[in-house]
Design a protein around this nucleic acid. Structure first.
Lengths: 189, 189
DNA sequence: CTGTCCATGTAATTCGTTACATGATTCA
DNA sequence: TGAATCATGTAACGAATTACATGGACAG
């Protein structure tokens, strides 16, 4: 499990509260690791017990008290250990592929519509990523260290979304062709 | 959750035992949906209770008895319902990206080595997929219906693995460049 | 005679999801 | 006046992971 490690990486970049982390997991980090606020709170609690992070309680008035977490030395050690550990390739669970593969058991046009929906969502994401790339990393060749690594992860997101958009387009075209062929055969019969 | 739907699709293509399904999830279907035999047995049991599948018990001697499952009408209905339902884009959990993003907190060279390992695994998978493509789908333009849909899912696997290999290469090149730059700066200091 | 294949499962634990709850503040 | 933001959490449930267990057949 890498949620704790994703949190360690994020907290090392900048200490923060569970709430703040949850919002980071809605954007930047969330582009390659999904997590809800409940998962994050639960995990932070456990990490605190393991002394991987320290919590500084800050009483506020006008708004709820908060706990600012920072990575501690044992946490940094754990991260280093994990970074060098060999991991398995990510397990894939791709609903849309299941739907495409099962399309002929239902209405293929409906499945195609679903593919089109996903295509648009991925295209939107791709635009977002490309906008971030342009704005935050205008000169990639000058990057190094942490900034370079952030950029490379973003590049991964761009490549992944692009591949998905292209695949959806391939599927849509092929399925449209299949419908045309079928109706032509109907006409011949 | 789509495990039950992946099972329905697979059982519709060919009835089989839990054990057999587990092996299909190690190959073809497993290329886009991962599942272990425990997950499959548990899910099959539940699906049987819901009458989505029927189980035919076959006593054997010399080897354990087995249950051959087939999709029943309510199961086919459920599949049709699910196929037309709008789903969310898959949630991503990509360990390797977390490692790349955190590389500067450990030894970047070690992380690069891990990226190289993954690159090779993805390249191997890509070769497997391409071999299947050549062997099972020599003339894609002639495909239609179920065979077309199987082919399209395979195409998705090919595109995904290709994108991953290319990304790993980009990461490796950039990280090598970064090391060179750092050591040059060391020399200047 | 060791290991892999067939075939099924239980048990324990962790992880992920969804819903519910609180309560002041700020902005439209 | 109502919605969103900040900030934390509990509770319940469902899903996934990992380990353990059985036992004959057959190949190297």
């Amino acid at each position: 499990m890498a949620l704790e490690h994703a949190i360690l990486v994020s907290l090392d970049e900048r200490p923060g509260t569970g709430y703040e982390l949850a919002r980071r997991f809605d954007k930047s980090i969330g582009f390659f690791w999904a997590a809800t606020h409940q998962q994050i709170y639960r995990t932070l609690k456990r990490m605190d017990e393991l002394h991987w992070v320290t919590a500084e309680e800050i009483t506020q008035d006008g708004r709820p008290d908060k706990k600012v977490y920072r990575v501690s030395e044992p946490g940094r050690q754990e991260l280093r250990r994990w970074l060098e550990e060999a991991g398995e390739p990510a397990t894939i669970r791709h609903d849309l592929s299941v739907k495409v593969r099962g399309a002929s058991l239902g209405d293929p046009d409906q499945v195609a519509a679903e593919v089109a929906r996903h295509r648009d969502q991925h295209a939107e994401r791709l635009d977002v990523f490309r906008a971030i790339e342009k704005k935050d990393f205008p000169d990639p060749s000058a990057l190094h260290g942490r900034r370079l690594h952030q950029y490379l992860v973003l590049r991964g997101g761009i490549r992944a979304e692009q591949a998905l958009v292209e695949w959806c387009d391939e599927v849509l075209e092929a399925m449209r062709g299949d419908v045309r062929r079928e109706s032509r055969e109907d006409g011949v019969r």
